[in-house]
């Protein structure tokens, strides 16, 4: 590679290069470390990746407390999968059907739990299990890691309907 001589084009090139380099180097310093909110994060690029994706995700543990007092931590996917398979055969749920693997074809809305829906899913489990009660423990994803959301909430599966 050969070096170019110093001309006015060189000085223009050098100035533009240094301005861009300073912008790319110190812009994130300003927006990430000094003024880390609002439009400055976009005007002066901040390289935060996936800052919002996954936040608010709820991780729930359902424990089935049987009538004899024994406790079993439920795998809600296994527990609900059979019920889902049965529901697929009905005309109301025909749109769920897919030629792909039956496991993966189940829509995301069926599995994912949004904040505040833990009890709703517990009632769905109650419909399958029929007896005992469901104890709910959940945590929610935040910028500070997992934060406890629900602790030891119990949903009773009495007969045909579940009561809180």
């Amino acid at each position: 590679m050969t070096a170019q001589r110093m001309t006015w084009q060189h000085w223009v090139r050098l100035s533009v290069f240094l301005i861009f380099t300073a912008f790319m180097t110190f812009g994130p310093f300003y927006s990430q470390l000094i003024h880390s909110n609002g439009a400055s994060r976009i005007l002066f690029r901040s390289w935060t990746m996936f800052s919002a994706f996954g936040l608010g995700t709820v991780d729930v543990r359902f424990t089935h407390v049987r009538d004899d007092g024994t406790e079993v931590v439920l795998d809600r996917y296994e527990t609900l999968k059979d019920a889902y398979e049965k529901s697929k055969r009905g005309p109301r749920h025909r749109w769920f059907y897919s030629n792909w693997s039956k496991w993966k074809s189940i829509p995301l809305q069926f599995w994912s739990i949004r904040p505040g829906e833990e009890a709703l899913h517990a009632k769905r489990l109650c419909e399958v299990l029929g007896t005992g009660s469901i104890r709910i423990d959940s945590r929610i994803a935040t910028r500070h890691g997992w934060v406890p959301a629900v602790k030891d909430e119990v949903i009773r599966c009495d007969g045909e309907s579940a009561t809180e």
Binding site: D59, L108, S112, A141
Partner: peptide, 13 residues
């Protein structure tokens, strides 16, 4: 925990 929550959102099944 960040990656775990991202994967739980995307690959919940």
């Amino acid at each position: 925990e960040r990656l775990q929550s991202i994967f739980m959102t995307r690959y919940v099944h």
